[in-house]
Design a protein around this nucleic acid. Structure first.
Length: 372
RNA sequence: GUGGAUAUGGCCUAGUUGGUUAAGGCGCCAGAUUGUGGCUCUGGAGAUCAUGGGUUCGAAUCCCAUUAUCCACC
């Protein structure tokens, strides 16, 4: 098997656990945050930089790489790892999120999804089998079942049909996938915000059986409390000896709350995207570095940070770079945000090890400004 | 010196035959961003329409003068 998961320690105060995932490209310490490199690159970063920031695994995207440069080309290049010179683990998303995000450019049928390319309008058809075929060519360590990420809000009947189709698609994905020794295929639980549908989805996906399980369809605009409620309900139904991956989560509070509820993996474009638009996360909360108040501020972004950006550059300089639209601004902010979140996850792992996660969360929330 | 043209928020402009709270872009200020989308999106502030006078029920729009700038000529 391509994946081995081991729980090293369970928290006595909550459902958090410390673990280890072994993949063909190395070991991942969990809970882990996975930076997103949609188009075979974490935007603005070299793979070496991403590695040095502490990333253990990155996520890339089936839909985008299928469109450009094409999965066959990447296969010809020797696979995604070699193509992009990233030799640690990779996870590819199945294209399922694009079923959600390209809402007005796609048509869902039982067989699969017809997409109109967001690039040139050309039509493409991705079925569960096609998604697996593409992901096999890309060669990521962990690949995902082709699903539909249902929107929020959505009515019961729609979510039910969607979830049941996702279950049928999961079976097809598993049947089609072959090289289990190199690539672990994860199943995805859906069901929107309806508990009975979540329960049914978990049952379906567990019946099919996968080396890891993802929870999809959360973090799609619902309030944090609702996501927590769904996690409280869903996560305990997932087996303890398999990794649990919450898709699309990337703010510190969502990450804390997810880990506390037993999540081992999460990914999000947020830290890199907001960095490109001039927002950084600091130990004292978010700040928009473009703002005038930083014009003459010669301190580092975060007084407690020791990343490359913070040890070398000031707020005033980074603000200047954004104001004159220089690429370096995006790079420095991305370096900082990724480092911040990866370090946070490291601290969370350490807190679990010391069995003081709740205390650490309290400290962090107070400083960050989530609670007063 | 003579002739001509232009003067609209910090900058560049739109304002149709004079008619409600002068429009837009850039810049400025602030916010957003959650398994897509690197120069994105959403708000906001800011103009007594060069100055003075006149015509008119009503003028950024018409007339006169002044000032400034630009062009051509002597």
């Amino acid at each position: 098997m391509a994946l081995e998961f081991k729980v090293l320690k369970e928290s006595t105060e909550c459902s958090a656990r410390l673990g280890q995932i072994k993949t063909p490209h190395g070991v991942i310490e969990t809970p882990v945050f996975m930076p997103v490199g949609t188009q075979a690159t974490v935007k603005a970063m070299t793979p070496e930089e991403v590695r040095d920031l502490g990333a253990q695994i990155i996520l890339s995207n089936t839909y985008h790489l299928y469109l450009r440069p094409g999965h066959k080309l990447i296969e010809e290049a020797g696979g995604l790892h070699k193509f992009m010179n990233w030799h640690k683990p990779i996870l590819t998303d199945s294209g399922g999120f694009q079923v959600f995000s390209l809402n007005d450019l796609r048509k869902i049928t039982e067989d699969g999804v017809e997409f109109r390319s967001h690039i040139d309008g050309s039509t493409h058809f991705i079925s569960p089998e096609k998604s697996i075929e593409i992901q096999n060519s890309l060669g990521a360590d962990i690949i995902m079942c082709f699903d539909e990420c249902t929107p929020y809000p959505a009515d019961y009947e729609y979510v039910k049909e969607s979830m049941e189709r996702t279950s049928r698609w999961a079976k097809r994905c598993k049947d089609y996938h072959e090289n289990w020794d190199k690539q672990a295929l994860f199943g995805i639980v859906q069901g929107g915000m309806y508990k009975d549908l979540r329960e049914k989805s978990v049952k379906d996906i567990l019946d099919i059986g996968f080396p890891g399980y993802a929870i999809g369809g959360l973090s799609v605009g619902e309030p944090l409390e609702l996501m927590c409620e769904m996690l409280d309900f869903t996560t305990p139904m997932l087996p303890k000896d398999k990794p649990r991956y919450l898709m699309g989560v990337g703010t510190p509070d969502y990450l804390f709350e997810a880990v506390i509820r037993g999540i081992d993996m999460a990914d999000c474009v947020l830290p890199t995207r907001i960095a490109r638009n001039g927002t950084v996360m600091t130990s004292q909360g978010r700040l928009t570095i473009r703002n005038a108040e930083y014009k003459n501020d010669f301190n580092k972004l975060d007084p407690e940070c020791d990343c490359y950006t913070c040890t070398n550059y000031t707020r005033a300089y980074i603000r200047h770079l954004f104001n004159v639209n220089e690429i370096l601004g995006a790079r420095l902010a991305t370096i900082h945000n990724l480092y911040f979140l990866l370090k946070l996850m490291g601290n969370i792992r350490e807190a679990i090890r010391q069995d003081r996660l709740m205390e650490y969360r309290e400290e962090f929330y107070k400083k960050y400004g989530y609670i007063k």
